[in-house]
Amino acid sequence: MSILINKNTRLLVQGITGNDGLFHTTQMVAYGTNVVAGVTPGKGGEWVLDGKVPVFDSVKLAVDATGANATVIFVPARFAPDAMFEAADAGIPLIVCITEGVPVQDMMRVRNYLDHKKVRLVGPNCPGLLTPGESKVGIIPGNIAIPGNIGVVSRSGTLTYEVLYALMLEGMGASTCVGIGGDPINGTNFIDCLDMFEHDPHTEKVVLIGEIGGTDEDKAAEFIATKMTKPVVSFIAGQTAPPGKRMGHAGAIIEGSAGTAADKIKALQAAGVKVAKHPEEIPSLLK
């Protein structure tokens, strides 16, 4: 069992003919993900992966022809907002955007538009999702995780791999791993995932990987304290990061002094979360 993706996921890949898109489509298919179509405007009618996956000119055409129910976006940052709008307008309920470097104001427009559409976005600037043994949507290497009962949610990319790998070395597996991305404005957040893990019968424990900046970990701590029955273990990156060189007063007015690793760790510990000193300590805290 899992959240968000499983063996019934019918995946579309936006930007399938690009370097990264093609490389990771190959990896996803090799993992067993049901990739039903790709989109690259201007390349409709072509096939990739030795004739296994058809390419369409638009998301709408691809959905009509294949019944795709999730999409993963690999297009460059300047085209990614349009790709997200297009997927939402085509009615795809789950959009996973891997692309990094999307301008913040674009993301504010995308997020506010998607909220009206009741579409779930994961990312951008994220590694995607992995339900070990069933489906992989994005770029998380498949061979670093095994199926299990630990839900993993993370703001980071490669740090998430580090944690999955550490779990696997100890024989521990994941129900689903969700990389929600590190951008200031993104789609799915910690609380969304904690809530889904809380309600997933096959997830028994949760690992939450946060980092400095913003207040999402503090909100997660509050959610854990009030709404969660399953144990949560956490790691927060950036304990030695120098304070940001900020300018102007607006940031301080909006966020106050929140956002340091120490503050987040304190909030999580107060909510009963065990916080690891480094990622490889996580498995022992889960035992």
Binding site: T158, L159, E162, G182, G238, T240, P242
Partner: peptide, 26 residues
Amino acid sequence: IKLDGSIGCMVNGAGLAMTSMDIVKL
């Protein structure tokens, strides 16, 4: 970002880069 220590770090990903700094210090 330049810092004052003696161990140069090259890492992929901001979260892992920060973690690598944290663990060096640890």
